[in-house]
Simulated scan of single mutants.
Amino acid sequence: MLVESAAAALRQTFSPPLRAILWKSLGLTLGLLVLVWLGLTRLVQAFQASHHISSQYPILDSLAYYLAGFGLFVALAYLMPAISILVASFFLDDAAAIVERTDFPGDPPGQAMPFGTAMLYAVRFAGVTLLVNLAALVIFFVPVIGIAAFFAANAYLLAREYFEMAAARFRPLPEAAAMRRTFPIRTLGAGCLLSAMMVVPILNLLTPLFGIALMVHLHKRLSRRERLTGPRGA
């Protein structure tokens, strides 16, 4: 079920109906990353200036410059999940509607959540994701544990957010959360796939749109299983 959903989502991500949304999603993701990068570099420059590193220790200034560049790259990787959630919230309904219409034409279409509710939910969860990833960043240099913490935390957070946003087009949010808990293995497996994408440069830019398509397919398949067999785990 997960393999079929992932293959269908990958096909949908580059399909003509979603191509315009793909470019918008990429543009917004890159734009937010650039803004964060500029903000972080200004903080580093302000720190260096306040400690007079340039005037007192030119060699240390050069070393700090290159170390800061690596540090900022790592920081952006840890901020990417929160940015992905925000971007997905902007394009969820348009992208989900296309996926539903093209791959599930016989099913009733989903209903978009009120814009204010959807944004509040996305911003709140993006904030949680940001805090969790900042905590994971603290242990980045601990061998194995740092990467494992990043992967595990984001597998859960991305599975929860993307699946519940997709499911909320067909059921109230509490029911969407309950459905995710009913099928923990499949939803968490999808989250693991999204978390793995996060650590691959360039590919991680596709996460918002791919995640939407993936969870729409997964929700549809799990909904059909519920109708055939009744709710049950895994």
Results as ranks from 00 to 15, higher is better:
3 V>E: 10
8 A>I: 03
8 A>M: 02
12 Q>K: 14
14 F>R: 03
14 F>C: 05
18 L>V: 07
19 R>G: 00
21 I>S: 12
21 I>E: 15
22 L>P: 03
23 W>L: 15
25 S>I: 06
28 L>Q: 13
30 L>E: 15
32 L>T: 04
34 V>G: 01
39 G>C: 02
40 L>A: 14
43 L>K: 08
43 L>E: 14
47 F>E: 00
51 H>L: 10
52 H>C: 00
56 Q>W: 11
57 Y>F: 03
58 P>R: 02
58 P>M: 04
62 S>Y: 13
63 L>F: 10
64 A>I: 06
64 A>D: 09
70 F>R: 08
71 G>P: 08
72 L>K: 15
74 V>Y: 08
75 A>V: 09
76 L>E: 12
77 A>Y: 12
80 M>Y: 06
82 A>W: 05
84 S>H: 08
86 L>V: 06
87 V>S: 06
94 D>L: 11
96 A>Q: 07
99 V>S: 02
100 E>R: 03
101 R>I: 05
105 P>T: 06
108 P>E: 14
110 G>T: 13
111 Q>P: 11
113 M>E: 14
114 P>A: 05
116 G>W: 13
118 A>K: 12
121 Y>F: 08
122 A>Q: 04
123 V>E: 11
125 F>Y: 11
127 G>E: 07
128 V>K: 04
133 N>K: 04
133 N>E: 14
141 F>D: 13
143 P>D: 15
144 V>Q: 15
151 F>G: 00
151 F>E: 09
151 F>M: 05
152 A>I: 15
153 A>V: 07
156 Y>K: 04
157 L>C: 04
159 A>R: 05
166 A>T: 02
166 A>H: 07
166 A>V: 03
171 R>S: 11
172 P>K: 00
173 L>M: 10
175 E>G: 09
177 A>N: 12
180 R>V: 07
180 R>Y: 08
183 F>P: 11
184 P>C: 05
185 I>W: 08
186 R>T: 14
188 L>F: 09
192 C>S: 09
193 L>W: 05
198 M>L: 13
199 V>S: 11
200 V>D: 09
201 P>R: 06
201 P>E: 08
205 L>Q: 03
207 T>V: 10
212 I>C: 02
213 A>W: 01
213 A>V: 01
213 A>P: 03
215 M>K: 12
221 R>H: 13
223 S>G: 12
228 L>N: 00
